[in-house]
């Protein structure tokens, strides 16, 4: 069952490779976009940090670790998650969902994996470079356990973002569109700030409702050796809960899916 789905997924990546050759220019656009984002955020922080040595305990170099992690997560999300999420309401509107529902594969898996925007993966090396640079600036003690922990949290965080985004888009099953469609990008981009920058209520929001904290702030804390050990337990459990929730939500939505053309 799992193997079957993994093989289908691999095939989608192969298709993405073949389709990519039709849009070579996209690679350079993605490269530029990724670099531009880095320039924008780094400059913004450079300006702000003129006025303060730290923000909520985060030095400039430490914040750039978060920014680097955000680039990596953004690369994964933009390559594998976003292209699919952006289509879900369109599948409903055009009735293409009908065709996807006919396949003997989990429909949630199918609508979540079939499109891959390969050029966006360029953000991962960009983020990694920034992360290493910022880590050196912050005198980071690179420990294997810290890195593995950060990786685990980043993975959990990415899965959480996927699950939440997916549920937001699944609203289209009822309403043929999702009010969150234009919002998610802006919401998840808050991940480039450490959540400590915000007031308590906002921090809770960014941890449990729009769970960007798990994808960037917590991995950065893991690298810095400042992570609350409780998070190590919470992260995988919460990721699993959100994934199961998204599955339930999708199945519930499919029951009331009326299909665009009758």
């Amino acid at each position: 069952m799992l193997m079957h789905h993994l093989r289908v997924w691999r095939q989608f990546w192969l298709v993405a490779f073949m389709r990519q050759s039709a849009f070579r220019a996209n690679f350079f656009l993605s490269l530029f976009e990724g670099l531009a984002q880095v320039v924008l955020v780094v400059t913004t922080f450079a300006i702000i940090y003129q006025y303060t040595p730290d923000i909520a305990g985060w030095t400039q170099a430490q914040v750039l670790i978060v920014v680097g992690l955000y680039r990596i997560v953004d690369g994964i999300i933009n390559a594998q998650v976003a292209p699919n999420m952006r289509e879900i309401d369109k599948y409903v509107q055009t009735g293409e969902l009908d065709l996807l529902l006919l396949r003997p594969v989990e429909s949630q898996f199918l609508v979540s994996t079939r499109l891959v925007a390969l050029p966006e993966l360029i953000n991962i090396p960009i983020g990694l470079a920034l992360l290493i640079y910022a880590g050196l600036q912050a005198n980071l003690a690179w420990s294997i356990s810290g890195i593995l922990l950060a990786l685990m949290l980043l993975l959990c965080g990415t899965l959480m973002i996927y699950a939440v985004w997916f549920m937001m888009m699944a609203l289209a099953l009822w309403f043929t569109w999702s009010p969150f469609e234009s919002m998610v990008g802006n919401l998840f981009s808050i991940g480039r700030y450490p959540v400590d920058f915000f007031q308590r209520q906002v921090r809770a929001l960014l941890t449990f409702i729009v769970p960007v904290a798990f994808a960037t702030t917590f991995p950065a804390e893991a690298l810095l050796g400042q992570l609350d050990p409780l998070i190590i337990v919470i992260a995988p459990i919460f990721a699993l809960v959100l994934l199961l929730l998204s599955q339930r939500f999708w199945r519930w939505g499919l029951r009331s899916y009326g299909s665009a053309s009758s």
Binding site: Y51, A56, F197, F198
Partner: peptide, 14 residues
Amino acid sequence: VIQPVVSLLVMLTI
């Protein structure tokens, strides 16, 4: 309004 509000919150913290 998300981005301006987020920027505002950060500036207020500072």
